[in-house]
Amino acid sequence: MGNVMIDINSLDVTFRRGRDVVRAVSDVSFSVTEGECFGIVGESGSGKSTVLRAICGLAPATAGNISVNERQLSRPRDAAFYRSVQMVFQDPYASLHPRHTIDGVLSEPLAIHRFDRAEERIENALRDVGLGSDFRFRYPHQLSGGQRQRVAIARALILEPKVLLLDEPTSALDASIQAEVLNLLDRIRSERGLTYVMVSHDLAVVAHMCDRLIVMQHGRAVEELTREGLLSQSARTDYSRQLLAASKGYSASSPQQV
């Protein structure tokens, strides 16, 4: 295994508004080695997306340390950070600008980071995600959900990052399209040696993609598991076992109380 790519140490994210205090994430620690796919599983409100947003500076880390590639992160994040860490969001219907063509979506990050050979890079990025160059001048509404998510992945990849943060990348897609997008992500990771942090509520998706994962509940990491540990049913906490049972489908007999 390579060196540590992402190291998070007792991260806290607290939102305050007036007298209301919401501790979205409290005391979460994990580290991800280079080339690994790391999963975060939990239900809505468990703080799993907030962890990702804290890494890329979209949510304020109120305590704890985050370092990427053995560098403490500056606030605000500098351009070099965004060149090496990119995010893919959940809803491809909301994350692409409806009035920008795919070409516009892909050329904006290139212009911001002053990349050369924009023409060539856009063509390559589209080809890498399995879309032909005839998609280049279309608008998002002319694309299906799966195609949009491919564009969102192309947008993240075009800066040649080292880390991809994936926030529920397939939960808005049909099962058959989900398989295609997961295969695409898997292939790109092995070709380029990327590091992924993947957030999902679907245990099966995370188990398929990731070697290690943490289970989050109420802002805390309740358990860290390996894929083998998940298979051999060695989940220790009740909550992980409940998630595991629930993801197998409905059964009339199994006890269920949250």
């Binding site: 058959s176 989900q178 398989a179 295969n183 099966a204 188990a207 998940l230």
Partner: peptide
Amino acid sequence: QGLMNCLPKIEGGARPLPVL
């Protein structure tokens, strides 16, 4: 059959996933 097979399984399974 295709819909069934393209679901990722916790028990592990084919990689890449079979595509419909």
